[in-house]
Structure formats: structure tokens, C-alpha cells
Amino acid sequence: MVEKYLTGSEEETFNLGVQLARKLGPGTAVSLEGDLGAGKTALVKGIAKGLGVRDTITSPTFTIVNSYEGDVTLHHFDVYRIDDPEELYEIGWEEYFNPNDVCVVEWGDRVSQMLPPGALRIRILRDETQPDKRTILVERQDQE
């Protein structure tokens, strides 16, 4: 089943992230997908707020992962610059995906084979005719 949301600004995308965080219990993995500038980091900032994170959220483009403490620990990955998925094993990729934490992976479609079964897939699509409009599709992946 796919849930569809429409947002008209970065603030609305952020607020949707806050709402979506209520559905993310410990142990949840999220594949976040969309073009450059689609609003992935804005959505993660909202998810973080919804999970009780008080720190400033920044995209981990060069560090690969940032971890934040809140009501639950949030691990925020950005795998855009990963050339070989093996690089993720070098940083302890598998250890982040545990039953106590939430993991959000920007560009998750690039490493979909490495995500745990049942990961939540969130796709952000831009409206080419209205630059601030986004269609956000949320889909739970099949358990294996």
C-alpha cells in the first residue's frame, strides 16, 4: 500500500516529516529517495524533530552518517557519494540497523539491496511546473 502526500513548501515537507515520525518505531529503516534538491534533508529534519531530537540536523554528505539522540536514536545516512557499497561495511553499516534505533538513508535506492527487509520507502517527486510542490509517496517494502 502506498500513502500519498502533497506539500507546497519546505516548511510543509518538514511538518510532514514530524507527522511521519509518529509511525517510525525503534528498529525502523527508511529509504529516502528523490532528486537533488527534492527535499530529502527537510523531511529528515522533520522526522528528527518528531523523534525528539533537539540537535541541528545537517546532511551527512561527506561523513556518510550522523547520529542524533532523541526519544530514540536517529542515524541519518547520505550515500550519494558512495561508489562501492562495500564502503558502508567499513563504517559498521549493519550495526546501525538495530531494534532500538531509527535509520534514515538518503539516496537509499542506491543501496536498496543492503537495507533490511521491511524498510519504509519514501519517494519525493518534484512538480516540474510548480517548483515548491512535492508529491511524497510512502510505501512499506515487503518483508523477506
Rank of each mutant, 00 (worst) to 15 (best):
V30L: 12
D142Y: 01
M1K: 07
L24G: 00
Q113A: 15
P117H: 02
T13R: 14
Q113V: 11
E11M: 14
Y5R: 10
G52F: 01
Q141C: 15
I64R: 06
R140D: 04
A29C: 10
T56F: 12
H76N: 07
G39W: 14
D78Y: 07
R123H: 12
E139W: 00
L32S: 03
Q141W: 09
D78L: 09
D83A: 05
V18I: 12
E106T: 13
W93R: 03
M114G: 05
E144P: 14
I122E: 00
R123K: 14
D132A: 09
V44Q: 02
G37W: 11
A29N: 00
V105H: 02
P116R: 00
E106H: 12
V72Y: 05
E95H: 13
T135C: 08
T13W: 15
L120M: 15
E11P: 07
H75P: 04
Q130E: 15
E69G: 01
Y96R: 06
R81S: 11
P85S: 09
G52K: 08
G50W: 11
F77P: 01
P116D: 02
R54T: 15
T41L: 13
V138H: 15
P116L: 06
G50L: 06
Y5A: 01
E12M: 08
V2P: 06
E10P: 14
I124V: 14
P117R: 05
A38K: 07
P116M: 08
D101M: 06
E87T: 04
L20C: 11
V18T: 02
P26C: 05
K40D: 12
K133T: 08
R121F: 02
G118K: 02
D71M: 05
E128D: 14
L137N: 04
E95W: 03
E94Y: 15
G34L: 01
Q130T: 13
G92L: 03
V18Y: 04
L74N: 03
T13P: 14
E90R: 11
V65P: 03
V65D: 13
G25P: 06
V18C: 09
R134N: 14
G108Y: 02
G70D: 01
E33R: 12
H76R: 04
F14A: 13
G25Q: 01
L88I: 05
L6C: 08
V72R: 02
E144A: 12
A38T: 09
R81Q: 09
Y80W: 03
D127H: 14
T56P: 10
D78G: 06
M114W: 13
T73D: 01
T28Q: 03
E12P: 08
A48M: 11
N100G: 13
V79S: 01
G108T: 12
G92F: 01
L115W: 03
K45W: 11
Y80M: 03
E90D: 07
R110M: 00
R22F: 05
T129C: 03
I124Q: 03
C103S: 06
P85D: 10
